[in-house]
Amino acid sequence: MSTPDHSYPAFSPYITVQDAAKAISFYQEAFGATERFRLVDAATGKIGHAELNLQGGLLMLSDENPAWNKSPQTLGGTPVKFSLMVENADAAIAKAAAAGATVQMPATDMFYGFRSGCVCDPFGHIWMLQHEIEKVSPEEMQKRWNSMTEKCPASKESDK
Rank of each mutant, 00 (worst) to 15 (best):
M1N: 10
M1T: 06
T3K: 11
P4W: 07
Y8W: 08
Y8I: 11
Y8L: 14
S12F: 11
Y14S: 13
Y14R: 11
T16S: 01
T16H: 00
Q18G: 12
D19K: 03
D19F: 01
A21P: 05
K22Q: 14
A23T: 06
A23W: 07
A23R: 01
I24W: 10
I24K: 07
I24T: 12
S25A: 15
S25R: 10
Q28I: 08
E29T: 15
A30K: 09
A30M: 08
G32N: 07
R36V: 15
F37M: 02
F37H: 01
R38T: 05
L39R: 15
V40M: 05
V40N: 05
D41V: 02
D41P: 06
A42P: 10
A42M: 10
A43R: 11
A43K: 14
T44S: 15
G45W: 12
G45T: 08
G45Y: 09
G45S: 08
K46R: 14
I47S: 03
G48F: 04
H49E: 01
A50W: 02
E51Y: 09
E51Q: 14
E51L: 10
L52P: 09
N53A: 09
N53M: 12
G57R: 01
L58W: 01
L59P: 02
L59E: 09
M60V: 15
M60P: 03
L61A: 02
L61M: 13
S62G: 14
E64F: 00
E64A: 09
N65E: 15
P66H: 10
A67C: 02
N69H: 03
N69C: 14
P72S: 04
P72R: 05
T74H: 00
L75Q: 12
T78M: 00
K81N: 13
S83M: 08
M85V: 08
E87W: 00
A89Y: 04
A89T: 04
A92M: 07
I93L: 08
I93S: 01
K95C: 09
K95L: 13
A97V: 15
A98Q: 13
A101L: 13
T102A: 14
V103P: 03
M105K: 10
M105F: 11
P106A: 04
P106D: 10
A107R: 11
A107V: 12
T108C: 05
D109P: 01
D109S: 05
F111R: 00
G113K: 02
F114Y: 07
R115N: 01
S116W: 08
G117L: 07
G117N: 03
V119K: 00
C120G: 05
G124D: 07
W127Q: 11
L129H: 06
L129N: 07
L129G: 04
Q130V: 04
H131E: 07
E132H: 04
E134A: 15
V136L: 03
S137Y: 06
S137L: 03
P138C: 07
P138N: 08
E139L: 14
E140F: 06
M141D: 09
M141W: 12
M141R: 15
M141Y: 13
M141E: 11
W145I: 14
N146C: 13
N146Y: 09
M148D: 11
T149D: 07
C152A: 13
P153Q: 02
P153K: 09
A154Y: 02
A154K: 00
S155F: 04
S158T: 12
D159T: 06
D159N: 05
K160D: 13
